[in-house]
Simulated assay, not measured.
Amino acid sequence: MIDLGHRDIAFVGRNSTYSVSMERLHGYMECLEKNGITPNPDWMIETAISLAGGKDGMSRLLDMDRRPTGVVCYNDLIATGALSELGNRGLKAGEDIALIGSDGVASSAYCNPPLTTVALEPERIGEVASEMLMKRLKNPDAPAMKFLLKPKLIVRKSCGLTRN
């Protein structure tokens, strides 16, 4: 979104009971700061991790006097709810406001407009987890292991840019 010129970017899906939500929120904040953008705490929307939570979060953003031009959602489920609220307001993702989800669920390609998402490759995560478990079982006293998979950005119309 920053590369597309957005500087007013919100985060929907902050939920302090989910560690992954907080990790993604911190990543969002770090990215803004690295690009010289001060995160707006009013745009870090605490909500349920659900379709209804995405709808509610987007509604709260749209009711603000100063709206963001882009929204990063904790996951594709929340982003789908946010897309619904945009439609209810006569707005369209990718034209009136940029929207990005995360997780890369298959249904995100069938949203209207299709949802830009950060795909996490759950099959590969499962593979790596099994490999790590087998190594741990063979050597229980080995040092802790950490493996970080690089996500893949799948650009679709909801962010306002499409790539062929």
Rank of each mutant, 00 (worst) to 15 (best):
S50T: 14
G81E: 07
L83W: 00
L83V: 04
D42P: 01
A129D: 10
G36A: 13
P114F: 06
A109C: 09
Y74R: 00
P113N: 10
A82Q: 04
I49G: 00
C31K: 08
I97T: 06
M22Q: 14
E30P: 00
N15T: 14
G87Q: 15
G101N: 08
A79E: 05
A106T: 13
R67H: 05
R7H: 04
K92W: 03
A52F: 13
A109N: 09
C73P: 02
I97G: 01
L99M: 13
G57Y: 05
R24H: 06
T116Y: 02
I9C: 08
I78T: 01
D8R: 13
S19M: 12
C111S: 13
Y18Q: 08
E23W: 11
A93R: 00
M64C: 11
D42M: 11
N112I: 15
G36Q: 05
T69M: 09
P68Q: 06
G54I: 06
V71H: 05
I78L: 04
L115H: 02
I37L: 04
P113I: 10
G36P: 02
L62W: 03
A48Y: 07
L120S: 09
A106D: 12
A79S: 07
G87T: 15
G54W: 00
L133E: 11
E123G: 10
A119K: 11
S16Q: 13
V12F: 00
M132N: 09
L86G: 02
D8F: 01
A48I: 03
L99T: 06
P122N: 12
T117Y: 01
G70S: 15
S21P: 07
R60T: 10
E121K: 14
D65H: 12
T17D: 05
P41F: 05
C73F: 00
R24L: 06
N112D: 14
D103W: 01
P68K: 04
E30N: 14
T117P: 06
R7N: 10
L62N: 06
R124N: 12
A98C: 13
M22V: 13
G36M: 02
I9W: 02
G101Q: 03
K34C: 10
K92H: 08
G104K: 00
L115T: 02
S102W: 04
Y18L: 07
S107K: 10
L133Y: 11
C111D: 10
M132R: 12
N88R: 14
M64T: 12
M58C: 11
Y110E: 11
E131P: 05
A48V: 06
I49T: 07
E131S: 14
R14H: 14
N40C: 05
R66N: 12
K55C: 12
G94I: 01
V72G: 01
A79T: 02
K55T: 11
T116F: 01
R89K: 14
A52Y: 13
P122H: 12
L25M: 07
L133S: 10
G101W: 01
S16D: 15
R67M: 03
R66D: 12
N15L: 12
E127V: 15
L83N: 00
A98F: 09
L25P: 02
M22G: 02
M44T: 09
N40H: 09
R67D: 01
V12R: 00
G81N: 07
E121Y: 15
L62E: 08
V20K: 12
S84N: 03
A98K: 04
G101T: 08
V105Y: 04
A98L: 13
L61I: 10
L32N: 11
R60G: 04
A98N: 13
D8Q: 14
A119E: 06
Y28C: 03
